[in-house]
Design a protein around this nucleic acid. Sequence first.
DNA 1: ATATTTGCAAATTATTTGCAAGAAC
DNA 2: GTTCTTGCAAATAATTTGCAAATAT
Lengths: 161, 161
Amino acid sequence: MENRLERIKKHLHSQSYKLTPQREATVMVLLEHEEDHLSAEDVYLLVKDKAPEIGLATVYRTLELLAELKIVDKINFGDGVSRFDLRKEGAAHFHHHLVCIECGAVDEIEDDLLGDVEKIVERDYDFKIMDHRLTFHGICYRCKSKHETDQKDPTEAQNQV
Amino acid sequence: MENRLERIKKHLHSQSYKLTPQREATVMVLLEHEEDHLSAEDVYLLVKDKAPEIGLATVYRTLELLAELKIVDKINFGDGVSRFDLRKEGAAHFHHHLVCIECGAVDEIEDDLLGDVEKIVERDYDFKIMDHRLTFHGICYRCKSKHETDQKDPTEAQNQV
DNA sequence: ATATTTGCAAATTATTTGCAAGAAC
DNA sequence: GTTCTTGCAAATAATTTGCAAATAT
């Protein structure tokens, strides 16, 4: 954690941005909530615990800056709100998401599912892929198991690829 | 085109919604701009040509209704605006998009690229997929060819899958 | 020292809603 | 005739901006 903050600090400095306490607090919140998908407002409320004097506009500006530097990704799951998601360090690609239409949970998928698909797209559409967004909408395992009382689908064994 | 309007009409009626002139004009605009990715405002301006008395709120309400009926899909490419995209009739899945980060063009991909990926996700994450969103960000073929003066990548033949 | 960054409040943008009038069936 | 739908204007929500004061390097 310390290390990542240090590296982000250097990243900022390398572009001659300053690491102000407000920015540091914002980054810390993101690091501590890596699994979540916080809106700007969410981040603001959490940052206020560490730095009560911070303004919402500063959080917006910081998040935009971090997005510019590719430290976070700005994603949108269809409600009108942008959410901010820390890029995993060293990850070759932006991870994917599973959005449950029943309970609203958002789970992350780290697997590199798109390698082959991207090759096809680059070739067939002559498109140089720089980034991607892949989100599945459906029913998460938690909600599925709640339904289990209804009827059971026997084809649910696990296979390997 | 006539047919599709008729079918959409029936679809509305089947849920006891009426096909008002405003709704019809809105659907017509969407049919005539199937390749585009119009915002609510865009649709509003185009519908006004056909039905000048229409209000923006009605367009919003109609688009939301059409999205509910799965006639259109609401998508968001990262700017703060929702865009509305007609579902191809009979398409088993929602098509994908290529967004050019240079010129802003949005191209559509009809190919079913995610069949295998979805099987993996459903199995490994025990997630029942109902819908998906896949967008690639990068450089489109038009912008790529503008750069061609710089240097040329010889691996650009076209293959079939 | 000085260019960057902040906080606040006001502005902007996208979207939604209340409600009385209008239209479809 | 009654229920659904509309248009307008006002409300809300998310985000951005102007600017003087504060601060990191």
